[in-house]
Design a protein around this nucleic acid. Structure first.
Lengths: 156, 156
DNA sequence: CCAACTCAGACCGAAACGGTCTTGCTTCCC
DNA sequence: GGGAAGCAAGACCGTTTCGGTCTGAGTTGG
């Protein structure tokens, strides 16, 4: 539980792949087809296609139809956070069912658990927001600094 | 996504309730029936019963059968972390499907995403481990210190 | 203009979640 | 001792979500 869906996993992988490709190919933005990415990671092509579509709708990718078409990052990899990717694919993340879209708890008065967990929720959000696609591409050693102080404080 | 199941929510609420009850009743451990707790929070009694059973099996609660029976905390509230409660109810938490019980990734070689996300996973674990049932009972103001430094560092 | 290639949205089965019901066993109290 | 109150454990079921597939529409290149 508390699991990322497989879709989000795939999405992050694909994004990483696209980021790498645009690196090796220089500044020219080369679109990669969903099929290419899928084959690189051995994941179902059609499923990945759907994920990439979602990402494109969210403005994280740009799609280009037709022959030699495909997907490319809409922004620099350093500008795309893991948080927005996950949010785009899996929807808004709320650690507890208490915190709904409307901000109201099903058990309006009685749920006394809500507030502390909300803090946890915020912390996780902050955590994921600090991670960018570019961090996934670079060798892990060099990345520690990317997060900077990288300290997430939790105070209930 | 990244949601706690409703069961875990209920479990935490029930634990908080039990912790409060043992406070007001002094040092004597008074067992509360699943029904009592369920009514206090307006949640399905049978479902809560099943959750409490799970918690009892995990050694977090002690159950006492028969009339005037019920459940009570097996340990001081300050000794029960949110993490173990969630783990007991929802099973081991892995943020990504890559990190399985066996520690191996389905996409053995290809999944290059695993390592960074593992760090996130650990951070969340640490976060939840630092929260105890007692923190939920006390007024939120006084709790900040319970976490102490309460800083969770993330370095990829 | 055509054919190949790609995106795009609808569709579907399987698994998990939330919740209920039934049965059986224990303990307390009258 | 007998019955009521309460836990324990399992089967069961509807609903939702997830993972995955299929078919159709649009675009590009030649």
């Amino acid at each position: 539980m508390l699991r990322l869906t497989k879709k989000a996993d795939y999405g992050l992988m694909a994004l990483k792949y696209l980021a790498e490709q645009s690196l090796v190919s220089g500044s020219a933005v080369v679109a990669q087809s969903a099929k290419d990415v899928a084959e690189a990671y051995h994941i179902p092509p059609q499923l990945l296609a759907k994920i990439l579509q979602t990402l494109a709708r969210a403005g994280i990718l740009v799609s280009h139809a037709g022959a030699n078409g495909g997907y490319a990052l809409a922004r620099p990899a350093s500008d795309i956070s893991a948080f927005e990717v996950i949010r785009a694919i899996d929807g808004p993340l709320f650690i507890t069912s208490c915190i709904t879209i409307h901000g109201t708890c099903d058990l309006a008065g009685h749920c006394t658990i809500k507030e502390p967990l909300r803090k946890v929720n915020d912390s996780i959000t902050e955590l994921l927001s600090g991670i960018h696609i570019s961090d996934l591409v670079e060798p892990s050693e060099a990345v520690a600094s990317a997060i900077g102080g990288g300290l997430v404080s939790i105070a209930l």
